[in-house]
């Protein structure tokens, strides 16, 4: 936290270029001080390389690649902070598939938007806000209201709300249903199983190794019959971000008997999307823990 405050101060006083230089010592701190982070990074990069047949990364991952990976994460956090601080105008945002989102918003049907800890989901939020539709971010947190008010302080017109994921009651499902009925978006980062959750998970091959993913987002979409979209936002160059929206399903109520098969099928499509992003943007996968268990 001290590092973030220092960086914010330098950013205000000396500008973005100076502040971004600090990203090197910050990345070095994690690189030297947190061996599990480096291990997780190398584990991921090796899996990616094996899965891609040696194409990405093009040579056997070394510790310097882990440093590059961590630095890329630090850059991401820093630029997110700049964007929050009202600096969004200094970035270029490019979009593809945003017509899908616009169509869903205009139909008033609401939609579930699946993201991941890839690139900057937060930048994708700007896309939703530009459509002037509330976006409800499902989070496993006890601080939902505080996070919501944080966004409201940054921007009084903020349409971001945090929905608390409570695995112990049926309430989360009803809250999601109500958001969709108001024609809003519900965003879920679907690449992690929340700790301690009792929700149904499925094991699917990700980069050639079995990994656990939540099934609830797909069950929700099949039960409520709402559209299910993926939304991934990656950094494609200096101060440039690209958000791509893809349709997994336009929304159909799936009969119970075939629902689990359909949910697994949608999950497989989501994981294939993750793999594609890892291949194209190898250093923007931001899960720095033992992902494969």
């Amino acid at each position: 936290m001290a590092a973030i405050k220092l960086m914010a101060t330098i950013y205000r006083v000396a500008g973005r270029g100076a502040a971004s230089l600090l990203l090197y010592p910050i990345a070095a701190y994690f690189y030297l001080g947190r061996p599990p982070v480096v291990e997780a990074s190398l584990d991921y990069l090796r899996s990616l390389r094996a899965w891609s047949g040696g194409a990405v990364p093009p040579s056997e991952p070394q510790r310097r690649d882990a440093f590059h990976h961590i630095h890329s994460f630090a850059t991401n956090l820093f630029e997110r902070m700049v964007a929050w601080g009202g600096g969004a105008a200094s970035f270029t945002f490019e979009y593809s598939g945003d017509d899908h989102l616009r169509r869903v918003v205009e139909s008033g049907a609401g939609a579930i938007l699946l993201g991941a800890h890839i690139g900057s989901f937060d930048m994708a939020r700007i896309l939703a806000e530009s459509n002037r539709v509330p976006i409800n971010v499902l989070m496993f947190t006890d601080h939902a209201e505080r996070i919501t008010s944080f966004f409201e302080r940054l921007d009084p017109a903020s349409k971001v709300r945090v929905l608390r994921l409570d695995p112990t009651t049926a309430q989360t499902g009803f809250a999601i249903k109500a958001c969709l009925e108001r024609g809003e978006l519900v965003a879920i980062l679907a690449d992690r199983v929340p700790p301690g959750s009792r929700e149904q998970v499925a094991e699917v091959d990700f980069l050639g190794r079995p990994a656990r993913f939540p099934l609830s987002p797909y069950f929700l979409a099949c039960t409520l019959g709402c559209p299910l979209l993926t939304s991934m936002c990656v950094r494609t160059g200096d101060s440039t971000y690209h958000t791509a929206v893809d349709v997994l399903t336009e929304g159909e109520q799936v009969p119970r008997a075939s629902r689990e098969a359909r949910a697994r099928d949608l999950l497989t499509q989501y994981v294939a999307t993750l793999e594609r992003y890892c291949r194209d943007h190898p250093y923007q996968w931001f899960n720095f823990y033992r992902y494969w268990g």
Binding site: T169, A170, F174
Partner: peptide
């Protein structure tokens, strides 16, 4: 039953009886 079941039951009740089930946690409980 789990939370997806609850949701499904809500959808079926709404279709069958024309009731409206909101997201009021205490009431739903």
């Amino acid at each position: 039953l789990d939370s997806i079941d609850a949701l499904e039951l809500a959808v079926v009740l709404e279709e069958n009886y024309g009731v409206k089930i909101d997201d009021d946690p205490e009431r739903n409980q």
